[in-house]
Simulated scan of single mutants.
Amino acid sequence: MKYIYLLLIIALSISANGQTILGSWETYDDDTNEKKAVIEIYEMNNLYFAKIIKNIIGDKDAVCDKCKEDKKGKPIVGLIIIENLKKNGNKFDDGTILDPESGEIYSCHLEPINKDKLKVRGFLGFSVFGRTQYWIRKE
């Protein structure tokens, strides 16, 4: 019986430490720290994607005027902004992130800080030139 309790404790501790990036996240403006949007991260075919599910500041019916190709003119709400991330240990990388304000696409990696905070890094080249944001899990 002691072994069953031990296995149960081990299983619970593993699941508590297993942080997921899936779900809804709030983003914040870099300068004002004002809440900007709610992003949903989801998995499809062992790859991770994210789309805007709520635009908090600005026009609720805004479109991505500065986006290129197939995303140009698409509504901001529903816009897929992170594509093709691969899980690599505790990090998620080898994907891209779209900045809908500039229309630019950057290399991207995500790293859970804890269950409620996500480090999001968009960059050019070798991650030296870029920007880091922290997203907060939406309750």
Rank of each mutant, 00 (worst) to 15 (best):
I105F: 02
D59F: 06
F126R: 05
T32S: 15
L8I: 13
L98F: 04
P100R: 00
D61M: 12
D31V: 08
E101Y: 04
W25E: 02
N114T: 07
A11N: 13
G89L: 12
T32I: 09
G18R: 12
Y42C: 02
K119D: 04
G130K: 00
N17I: 04
I105R: 03
K51Q: 13
E111R: 15
E111S: 15
K117L: 15
Q19K: 12
Y5K: 06
G73R: 08
Y3K: 14
S102M: 06
Y106D: 13
R137M: 06
A16T: 12
N55V: 10
E104T: 11
A50Q: 05
G125I: 00
N55R: 10
D93Q: 09
L8C: 15
Y48T: 02
E101W: 05
P112H: 03
D70L: 01
N88Q: 12
D65W: 04
T32P: 09
P112S: 11
Y48M: 05
I39N: 00
F92W: 08
R121A: 05
A11S: 14
I80H: 04
K54G: 02
L118R: 01
M44I: 00
N45L: 11
E40V: 03
G125V: 02
D61E: 15
G125W: 07
L12T: 11
I76D: 01
E69M: 06
Y106S: 07
N114I: 09
N46Y: 04
D99T: 10
T96D: 12
L79G: 03
Y28P: 04
E43C: 03
I81T: 08
A37I: 00
N90Q: 10
K74Q: 09
G89Y: 06
G95S: 07
F126Q: 10
C108F: 01
I80P: 02
Q19Y: 15
Y3Q: 15
I57V: 15
L12W: 02
I52C: 02
G73L: 12
Y134L: 12
I113P: 12
L47H: 09
E69L: 06
K71A: 11
Y28V: 09
L22Q: 08
G18D: 14
I41E: 01
T27R: 05
Q133W: 06
I81F: 03
V120A: 02
Y5T: 03
S102E: 13
I80C: 07
E104P: 00
S24Q: 13
K35I: 12
K74I: 07
E43L: 10
K54T: 10
V38E: 08
G122H: 00
I39E: 04
K35A: 14
I9Y: 06
L79K: 06
G95C: 01
D70R: 03
I4F: 15
A62E: 10
N55A: 13
K66T: 11
A50L: 09
G23L: 05
L22V: 14
I9P: 01
D94T: 06
R121H: 15
